[in-house]
Design a protein around this nucleic acid. Sequence first.
DNA 1: CGTCGATTGGTACAGTTGCACCATAACGCT
DNA 2: AGCGTTATGGTGCAACTGTACCAATCGACG
Lengths: 190, 190
Amino acid sequence: MPRQVDHEERRRHIAAAVWRLAAAGGLEDATIRRVAAEAGVPARQLQYYFGTREDLLLGALDLLNQHGEAEARERIAALGPAPEPRRLLRSVLLELLPLDEGRRRRHLVHAAYFVRFMADEALRDRIRDTPPELEDLVALLLPEEHRDEAEFLLAGAAGLQGQLLLGHMSAHRAVELIDRQLDRLFAPAG
Amino acid sequence: MPRQVDHEERRRHIAAAVWRLAAAGGLEDATIRRVAAEAGVPARQLQYYFGTREDLLLGALDLLNQHGEAEARERIAALGPAPEPRRLLRSVLLELLPLDEGRRRRHLVHAAYFVRFMADEALRDRIRDTPPELEDLVALLLPEEHRDEAEFLLAGAAGLQGQLLLGHMSAHRAVELIDRQLDRLFAPAG
DNA sequence: CGTCGATTGGTACAGTTGCACCATAACGCT
DNA sequence: AGCGTTATGGTGCAACTGTACCAATCGACG
């Protein structure tokens, strides 16, 4: 192996530039030359590490997803072992809200990819910010008769995400609304 | 007035082409030449009726909004005079779901504009598919102590919109989930 | 030391982009 | 009929797009 360079690190560095541009101005701002300038590398490097522009966008999205999933897992693991269902559920729902710069950018990038990738059935799964496993988890955390509530809860959190991104609601208020729902669902006399 | 041509009709015809392209492949597909081809008019005409491309996108969005708002008002008016609060509320919430081609395209186009227009504070209001008046209406339809529920209900409907667009949930199921929430909120012993 | 493959850089090119410009046609008015 | 406004068409251009191509450089291994 000549010239030892960290391939993965390089790709993540470039992908991060894609995220910033896409989050700020949508996919059309993420041209090869502009991403290269944002990342501070020659444009040719993107070709080498990703191939075509389509591959670049696709690769950047995949990296974002695994990056975000790792962050989410970390935050949830920080609750400690065997957390109470309510606290666990709350953390899962809060992952859907842009409560810090990381999550905000993640959701913005997903929004930027949304329409473009929805046309292609194979790509459609990569732009959901709620993996199916999370949905199952939420359903498991609530009593069986509350399956409808579980699904609506997830939808509600996703909807609040949009409100927050648009600045139409404060993060504090969104969290409060979720907590009210949890109050109800975990009330003593369910 | 020489050469009587229906200015507004022309603009709507062109705007509809923007909607189709933006809904199918995002804003980057809505180039001047491509919109012209889709509308079947010379590209020069877009310049004449809208100005720059930015103006075209902006104008097409405004036309979509007023078009959609009219459609929504019509559907709600079809409930007849002084409908029961629950039916009225249900109709308002269902406006957020892509239950027909019109609403589906409207929400897709909004999604296409989302990131691009969020950067500009002045344009941010044009990409919300829930006008503030609707939010107030929803709050009014529920008893005072249910303000939190009203806001979460709207967020839930908006979240279901995303699930439906992505094909992760059937329209039937989404409507069912909303009806369950309404069952609860309008239960006799509130 | 030389060689070979991994990596980088620069550039060239055909296609597309948004937009400005100029001519001309169509029409309502005086 | 003539004029002025409104509308239309076509074309040109500089900037930018994605990507193919060629040359050079680097480092590890023989």
